[in-house]
């Protein structure tokens, strides 16, 4: 197990290094400068400012400087936020995205499991049909459409929740629902398929033959076994949600990180682009690693390959 982990860790670092390198050079190919007043500055004025920031150095030198900084956890200074450290930007803007992402995951996945489970048990009845339609709807309606509808009808017309902004828990409810749509639908459809599959397997027949109640069969055997593959799905989905959604965050005026990623690219804010990319990558590879480990722990069938040593 230790050897396996070491090997994985090595690949993890290699992956991150490759991501950093490729992103850095691709980013440097972007046209334009990171200066916000660029349209008013002449070429020579831009060069003067570049010199101050060390942007006039050859790209490979900038790359080495950057890499050296990153290893020490220094992502550099943002351009859009006048010289604010990128790590500070991340630290102050991540929590809102994290919170919304995790809330949306909990709500979405829980409801998804319930709905998917019910659909599987009552498969090919009207219940199943309705549930399927709901989940197809939720997966086809983009989160921003849902967000706009929620904001207008629930926020403005009904006045049940704040229209937009960030404050106490009530501010998070509408964006959470808007974001939960997709994980809900994905989970519901996944669980339904898995459970239908599991329910027709031999050990379920055996459990039934043993005289267990049907709820007992569903909870103890069918649902539990269907949940295992869900782990692979939840990891990346969570990372995706936690790193923020550009549109939903904008619609609800949430001070998250989602919009910053897009904005940093359009404004050529090099350090921020790198900072957010690397953070996203680290989260993703770490979550994938954890998923694999957890998978091995929960599902004895997988453990064989990883546990040779």
């Amino acid at each position: 197990m230790a050897k396996y982990l070491l090997k994985r860790l090595f690949y993890l670092i290699l992956t991150l290094f490759l991501i950093a390198t490729i992103t850095f050079f691709m980013m440097k190919l972007l046209p334009g400068t990171p200066l916000s007043n660029e349209s008013k500055l002449s070429h020579s004025q831009i060069q003067m400012i570049y010199h101050t920031y060390g942007l006039d150095k050859p790209v490979w030198q900038q790359y080495l400087i950057y890499l050296a900084g990153m290893v020490r956890g220094n992502f550099g200074l943002s351009f859009q936020f006048d010289n604010q450290p990128v790590s500070y930007l991340l630290a102050t803007r991540m929590p809102a995205s994290f919170q919304l992402g995790i809330q949306a995951m909990i709500v979405g996945v829980l409801l998804g499991i319930i709905v998917g489970g019910i659909a599987a048990i009552r498969r090919n009845t009207w219940v199943d049909g309705t549930m399927t339609i709901i989940s197809i709807l939720m997966i086809s309606i983009p989160s921003f459409v849902l967000a706009i509808l929620l904001q207008y009808y629930i926020g403005l017309k009904a006045g049940a929740f704040p229209v937009a902004g960030w404050g106490n828990f009530s501010y998070t409810i509408l964006p959470t629902i808007a974001l939960a749509g997709s994980p809900f639908a994905t989970t519901a459809r996944f669980i339904r398929t898995e459970m239908v599959d599991v329910m027709s397997s031999d050990y379920i027949e055996l459990a039934k033959a043993k005289g267990l109640t049907s709820t007992g069969v569903v909870y103890h055997h069918a649902l539990r076994n269907s949940l295992i593959p869900l782990i692979t799905l939840i990891g990346p989905l969570t990372v995706n949600l936690m790193t923020g959604s550009l549109v939903v965050e904008n619609i609800f005026a949430v001070p998250g990180i989602g919009e910053q990623f897009v904005k940093s690219i359009t404004t050529n804010d090099y350090p921020t682009i790198m900072g957010i990319t690397m953070m996203y990558s680290v989260l993703l590879v770490v979550v994938l690693l954890i998923t694999d480990i957890v998978y091995g722990i929960v599902d004895p069938r997988i453990r064989l390959q990883g546990g040779q040593s």
Partner: peptide, 10 residues
């Protein structure tokens, strides 16, 4: 508030 419709709703 970056979204115009949001500002109008507010």
């Amino acid at each position: 508030v970056k979204e115009n419709n949001t500002a109008l709703n507010l």
